[in-house]
């Protein structure tokens, strides 16, 4: 049942995350507030991390009410609620969300239109999901590689109540990659703005 829940959340993220991230940088650029941020005594890293933490906080706040569901279930569940699995599930959701937020805000930093950012982000996420489905049953070596690279594969272990270090590392590095790329776009904006 908990696996079901985390599975549903993952599908929801596909639709929800592009909406959260699409405006992050695109809207700032369009409004001209990016010009203010860039001329403030802030480093690009501060801007990138600040925005990412804000997105994570918002995401955590959206996730929090789903706890009620588990609390209600735990009252009636027989045998007792496996809370450990619930928490690892949440950890997985949070890590996956972090990766998607980092990627989404990177895409948002590339354009001035949040609609474009939203659509492109959605398409990219959709591809990730499709890729995941197509490698689920793969057996060959290349299949294994793609399997490792599929972000949803790593999600499953959390839903089973296992904290797999390699998955944690995978998620953290994927999020870091997204943030790094965003940082590079902001830096390059300083150079080739027309």
């Amino acid at each position: 049942m908990i696996r079901n829940f985390t599975g549903v959340i993952a599908t929801l993220l596909l639709f929800l995350m592009p909406m959260l991230t699409m405006g992050t940088y695109a809207e700032e650029r369009k409004r001209g507030t990016m010009e203010m941020l860039m001329t403030s005594p802030l480093t690009e890293l501060q801007i990138v991390l600040g925005k990412f933490l804000a997105l994570l906080t918002l995401f955590a706040m959206m996730l929090a009410p789903t706890l009620i569901y588990h609390l209600v279930m735990s009252r009636y569940s027989e045998p007792a609620m496996p809370w450990r699995i619930v928490w690892t599930g949440y950890l997985g959701v949070f890590l996956l969300g972090g990766v998607l937020l980092a990627l989404g805000s990177f895409i948002s930093s590339l354009t001035e239109s949040q609609i474009v950012a939203g659509v492109v982000t959605f398409v990219v996420f959709l591809l990730l999901w499709v890729l995941d489905m197509s490698v689920r049953s793969a057996g060959s070596t290349t299949g294994e590689i793609f399997k490792y690279l599929s972000i949803l594969q790593h999600y499953d272990t959390f839903a089973q109540g296992v904290i797999d270090t390699s998955s944690v590392v995978f998620y953290l590095s994927a999020a870091a990659l997204g943030l790094f790329l965003t940082h590079r776009t902001l830096e390059s904006m300083r150079w080739r703005r027309a």
């Binding site: 409004r31 001209g32 507030t33 203010m36 001329t39 403030s40 005594p41 802030l42």
Partner: peptide, 26 residues
């Protein structure tokens, strides 16, 4: 610096916006 279009966040109040700017300006 005031650019040609004022860099405003329309969904903030005047006071909270200025407080935010004061904070990022150090």
């Amino acid at each position: 610096y005031l650019p040609e279009t004022p860099p405003l966040y329309p969904e903030m109040t005047v006071e909270s916006y200025l407080t935010f700017v004061a904070r990022i300006k150090g």
